[in-house]
Design a protein around this nucleic acid. Structure first.
Lengths: 220, 220
DNA sequence: ACCTGAACACCGTTCAAGT
DNA sequence: ACCTGAACACCGTTCAAGT
């Protein structure tokens, strides 16, 4: 979390009671990922420099190339980690939530809350700062898994009687909706008044979607 | 459209029958915007260099600073132009469309079609490659105007009897939905099968949203 | 008023060389 | 196997100087 320049975190493999400067550093790879995640949230993906990450980890500018093919692969790793965190948050929200409409709404609002809590990470996860995401299949898979909770909750909400095509469309619409609301929020597109009623407006949009979807499920 | 290195376009102010190299270039500002738009769609916002734009316009690397505060302001200008193009497309789609549900669906599908037709421009318009969009109020205003057609069509679709809070929520949800679907598409998040049924899936999502919204409008 | 050339401090990436 | 130092070609931006 700290972006200090002196002394690095050295999170894992602390078997020797925090050596001041390890010659081979022990676990440079994860130290780089941590440093990148911290710098990302501070400066944004477009301003994140590979050299600055190396400096934050107290190694030379060329050292990271032993662990990553280049800057983009490091960003992809951070994004993949972000999708796993989102997946965990969504699973927790699904367990915490109640039943029926409120369950759907809870999951949607939790999704938006994740984006607001880690804005730069969320932006990175959805393509900001990386040209070709498709080159990293691990990221695509993590992304797909992060959306499973919403898919399951919506299917449960619609009921087993709903045809699978409708369920699929609802899942796609639901993902599109929360993702769109999150992106619009991060852009500041909706901040024309006080920032506090942004959440209300998003809640209203999600409630409207969920309520009208429920009406559709009972009368297809 | 051409990204050749020799000879520039010189689009406007062609009063002297295409002078080979104008000393003061006539209208460098719009030439830079055109060159930037072309390079943007070719390489993406993150790979767009201010120097390359200057080269494409046959001027020195420092010349653009007479017309733009920096790289970001040039990108903001391109984005603003993009929002105006989107607004025009949405207005045209609203006039072209029929009535009722199909009108709503047409507008939504046209929105997604715009994003697919100009993927890098659309990405730029929604924050890719620029740290603080808020610093450019002209962009925010153009963005707001680009969404007016959808807002109007949805309000018309719901009917005057619908309370304004519901109309506002529906407009926000509609924008979020189409924007989210567009972004997911551009990320390649939904391309797990043949690319051709992506449009079908988006249409299904929008139809589901519009149909269930209509049901809500008639029974609030 | 507008443009140029040279300069500064950065950047991503490569590579021989070290341990 | 991992890391360093120096190098290359780029970049955004500034600034004195030209016309």
């Amino acid at each position: 979390m700290n972006a200090k320049k002196t002394r690095n975190g050295n999170r894992t493999a602390t078997r020797k009671a925090a050596p001041a400067r390890a010659y081979h550093h022990g676990d440079l790879r994860s130290a780089l990922v941590s440093a990148a995640a911290a710098l990302l949230e501070r400066d944004g993906a477009e301003a994140l420099s590979f050299r600055a990450v190396a400096r934050a980890a107290n190694v030379s500018q060329a050292a990271p190339y032993n662990h990553f093919a280049g800057r983009e692969e490091l960003l992809a790793t951070v994004a993949e980690q972000g999708f796993r965190a989102l997946e965990a948050a969504q699973i927790a929200a699904a367990e915490r939530a109640g039943t029926g409409v409120s369950r759907v709404i809870s999951l949607g609002m939790d999704y938006i809350a994740f984006a607001i809590a880690h804005p730069q990470l969320y932006r990175l996860m959805f393509g900001v700062g990386v040209a070709n995401w498709c080159a990293y299949p691990a990221v695509a898979e993590a992304k797909h898994r992060a959306f499973e909770p919403t898919r399951a909750v919506l299917a449960d909400y619609l009921g087993a009687a709903t045809p699978s095509a409708t369920r699929e469309a609802a899942a796609h619409a639901g993902w599109g909706l929360v993702h769109g609301l999150a992106m619009l929020r991060l852009d500041g597109s909706v901040a024309d008044r006080a920032g506090s009623d942004d959440l209300e407006r998003e809640a209203a949009a999600i409630e409207l979607f969920a309520a009208s979807l429920g009406r559709m499920g009972s009368a297809p």
